[in-house]
């Protein structure tokens, strides 16, 4: 599904050039659950931004479902993003002025889906994530765990093929963190591809494969399959 070929990302100011990603190669198959780990500043978040098409590569190719989106304009990226991707962030990034329902319906709004269908799909997702009773609350009225669950609901409401999660449990305590990881696992079992950046080793082991990064390079990849299957037993 995803194929990064010699992808480089550099940030340039007037005098300084910082290379965040250095000729990365990465493949992700459909239905995989991949975790990306590494110390601070290694380029994990940048990698996620590239994968999520919210940032452009400086060099290299990014094949998404066979299309090379590396040279796409903002508008073109936006279209591909709309139809295929869902995002979950460490700091939730809900819009404070909108209710839970309104936050979750946002992606559907931008796809021009009718009000009736929106209502039906959003309510269905809220049920599935078990947050329907907070439907009309504002983010400030929810706990951290509940906010992240709403974020997850928002990420999946448009039935994305790929979910990108940037430290989804970073701001949560262990109980809530576990809950979110369970959710992600369930989604993956239903066929959604997930790429997750994380600091937490235990949470990384929910994935099938762990990619380790350092200083803009991919160091190694470990397969975690055994541990995962062990959990399910």
């Amino acid at each position: 599904m995803i194929k990064l070929q010699n992808v480089t990302k550099a940030f340039r100011t007037d005098e300084i050039e910082t290379t965040a990603l250095n000729s990365i190669n990465l493949d992700v198959e459909k239905g995989e659950f991949v975790a990306v780990m590494g110390p601070s500043g290694c380029g994990k978040s940048t990698l996620l931004n590239i994968l999520g098409m919210i940032d452009n590569v400086t060099e290299g190719s990014y094949f998404f479902n066979g299309e090379n989106v590396a040279g796409y304009s903002e508008r073109q990226l936006s279209t591909v993003r709309k139809l295929n991707l869902g995002f979950i962030f460490q700091s939730f990034n809900l819009i404070d002025e909108l209710s839970v329902f309104e936050n979750v319906e946002l992606p559907l709004l931008y796809q021009g889906i009718s009000a009736a269908e929106r209502k039906q799909r959003v309510d269905a997702v809220l049920e599935k994530i078990a947050i329907i009773q907070r439907r009309n609350h504002l983010p400030q009225q929810l706990s951290g765990g509940q906010q992240q669950r709403v974020a997850v609901a928002r990420a999946v409401v448009s039935n994305p093929k790929l979910i990108l999660a940037d430290e989804p449990t970073g701001n949560l305590d262990s109980v809530n963190g576990e809950e979110v990881m369970q959710l992600l696992t369930k989604l993956n079992n239903e066929g959604t591809t997930i790429v997750m950046v994380t600091h937490s080793q235990p949470h990384a082991e929910y994935a099938q494969r762990v990619v380790n990064m350092l200083d803009g390079h991919v160091l190694s990849e470990n397969v975690v399959q055994l541990k995962r299957e062990a959990r399910h037993v």
Partner: peptide, 16 residues
């Protein structure tokens, strides 16, 4: 700014 970023991530284009 954050709201703008999120809306773009959620699929809004600049015109909207």
């Amino acid at each position: 700014a954050r709201e703008v970023g999120m809306r773009k991530v959620m699929g809004a284009d600049r015109k909207q």
